[in-house]
Design a protein around this nucleic acid. Structure first.
Length: 564
RNA sequence: GUCUCCGUAGCUCAGCAGGAUAGAGCGUUCGCCUCCUAAGCGAAAGGCCGGAGGUUCGAAUCCUCUCGGGGACGCCA
């Protein structure tokens, strides 16, 4: 919470308590109540700027009707020298306080002082937090789930950074295990089909059938010809994987860069296998008696650690499972790299994995509660009101690349962060490309561009912004001005709440609301006017709005155009 | 069957550490540029907050049950 805003809220509590003590001393209250009460911002401005429910909260304790308590307190209030102008008792016993123009002026001054740092706080100071997101399977193209996960993860990381956490953005590359074998097999068959004909070898049902596999096999054939037809299957598959996997990973990185996502760490699963960390983790589990052997496989006693059934760690064929590697991976995050907290963003289809992962961490002596998993629900794409399943061009499921080709990055990043992760959201393709006010991202950018335009216009007439005096800023008394300032003042608090709840959508909504309040102000109050002092005060307010929009949009790596 | 997410205006969704008359956008109807960007603003219409109990001075919000929809329950990842 902005220091000023929280200071004012706290001071109000003290003012009320002091008045209650005075009222009790004067005999208009039977005693000084001890129960807690809330100070909050009423939905309807007519009910004041801040409202306290003390009288209602104390009614039972004091055995007195709430209205009478409120009247007694109100009569004993001392508002001299505070930001409060007056208090009204209303409704069932609310005490509604109205802030003075000095408060609004000071908020504007505070925001201008903070500039590009406005909204930042040290709330999460000293906390190292790892945010792992997308982590798409490197055997094929990234899909819509990765698109949502990318926007969500990157913006969440940005939010945590803004709230003062030390954030590490991480991509986990599943470059080992079953799927890589399947990848090699699929590439192998496509490669052989090039030389032996389409019908020579059949692709098994559960292998990768995508066009991307064919393309990689063809590239490989273009490079090496049929040279690998004569070597062993094992050698050929290895060569194919060694060729195709780095290509795929590089492609993912390039596409994510286009999406404005830059990772601090690309963590390879294979490292866990090769450096012995996986074996080490399995040994720890064995030593702790967490495992047993059955049917040739190594099992984890998950049922003894909150799981519904035991899980295989090492298959009968000697290959460790994804789960085993994932335990080693999370052990690495906490025990090796020492993160205070780790956030994983997974598709909702992984939800069954959450409890057993946390349980396993607890079982090996780490704290599973330090792991937070955000489960994302599916995205439903629509165009002109119809559900879209396939890409028109490829006929296959729409990929991240398809999406970024069709929709501006600003819109994708913003729209994916309009809804909470857990909601099954609809992504309206026609709206996303539309450059109109219905598209919330343009609506916000437009407010910014409009302010820039005002400044340009003023500059062309020789009017430059200047610092305002306190009394000049106190000229901002129109309801539209005060609403706008009030909303501006909430930014830091909103960012902290959003960070705490892992909910970047809170901030996109905040920004839309800010744009709305600005547009209302714009229509109600002319900036350029004959009253020089008032004009400069309004210019200051516009600077606050412009800065704030810029701070939040650029936090989410969304551009802030000066002209639209 | 077990677990999980979701049911709020015609549509897409806010609100949910309980608070005053339940909000926004789209869509519908009607207004506002001789004046800083009309990609804007204003007004009207539109609701048993899925249903039933309970807790409370007070419930869209908390608890229990129930109905409807999505998803998950592999020696896949």
């Amino acid at each position: 919470m902005s220091k000023l805003v929280s200071a004012v809220q706290n001071s109000l509590r003290e003012i009320i308590l002091a008045a209650a003590v005075k009222a009790a001393a004067a005999g208009s209250l039977p005693a000084v109540a001890e129960g807690s009460f809330n100070v909050e911002t009423p939905a309807d401005r007519a009910n004041g700027d801040l409202s306290a429910n003390a009288a209602m909260a104390w009614a039972r304790e004091l055995r007195m009707p709430p209205r009478k308590i409120a009247d007694a307190i109100a009569a004993n209030l001392d508002l001299d020298g505070t930001y409060f102008e007056r208090c009204e008792v209303a409704g069932p016993g609310f005490m509604n306080f109205f802030l003075s123009p000095a408060y609004y002026g000071d908020i504007v001054k505070d925001i201008l002082d903070k500039g590009d740092d406005y909204g930042r706080s040290d709330y999460g100071k000293g906390q190292r937090i790892n945010v792992e997101f997308v982590s798409a399977n490197p055997t094929g193209p990234m899909h819509m789930g990765n698109a949502r996960g990318g926007a969500l993860g990157d913006c969440l990381a940005a939010l945590l950074d803004f709230a003062g956490y030390d954030v590490c953005r991480e991509f986990y590359i599943n470059d080992a295990g079953n799927q890589i074998e399947k990848f090699g097999l699929s590439l192998d068959i496509r490669y052989r089909q090039i030389f032996e004909g389409e019908d020579s070898v059949e692709l098994p049902e559960d292998s990768y059938h995508g066009e991307d596999i064919k393309e990689r096999a063809q590239e490989f054939a273009d490079l090496y010809g049929d040279k690998y037809m004569s070597v062993s299957e094992e050698e050929r598959r290895k060569a194919l994987v060694d060729y195709a996997l780095p290509k795929n990973i590089a492609a993912m990185e390039a596409n994510l860069t286009k999406y404005r996502i830059k990772y601090d760490v690309w963590f390879k699963e294979s490292v866990l296998h090769n450096d012995g960390e996986l074996a080490e983790t399995l040994n720890i589990m064995k030593e702790k008696g967490l495992t047993y052997e059955k049917d040739g496989a190594l099992w984890y006693r998950a049922t003894e650690h909150g799981g519904e059934k035991d899980e295989v760690l090492v298959r009968a064929n000697g290959n460790p499972t994804y789960f085993a590697a994932d335990i080693a991976y999370h052990r690495n995050k906490f025990a090796v790299r020492g993160f205070d907290r780790a956030i994983d963003i997974w598709g909702a289809d992984h939800h069954g994995h959450v409890a057993r992962m946390k349980g396993a961490l607890d079982a090996i002596g780490l704290d599973g509660s330090k792991l937070d998993v955000i489960l994302m629900q599916l995205v439903r794409l629509t165009r002109d009101g119809e559900v879209v399943r396939m890409s028109k061009r490829s006929g296959k499921a729409i990929t991240l690349v398809d999406l970024l080709e069709e929709i501006p990055i600003d819109a994708v990043r913003f729209l994916f962060n309009m809804r909470e992760p857990a909601s099954q959201m609809e992504f309206n393709l026609s709206l996303a490309v539309e450059q109109s006010a219905q598209n919330p991202v343009y609506y916000c950018q437009y407010a910014h561009a409009r302010i820039c335009s005002i400044f340009k216009k003023l500059a062309s007439e020789g009017i430059e912004p200047r610092a305002c005096t306190d009394s000049e800023l106190q000229r901002l008394t129109a309801p539209e001005e005060q609403e706008l300032i009030r909303h501006l003042s909430m930014l830091t608090d909103e960012i902290i709440s959003a960070a705490k709840n892992y909910d970047p959508a809170r901030i996109t909504r905040y920004t839309v609301d800010l744009a709305t309040l600005f547009h209302k102000f714009y229509n109600a109050c002319r900036v350029k006017c004959d009253d020089e002092a008032l004009m400069q005060a309004r210019i200051s307010l516009c600077q606050c709005v412009r800065n704030t929009i810029k701070n939040v949009l650029s936090m989410y790596k969304i551009t802030v155009p000066e002209v639209m």
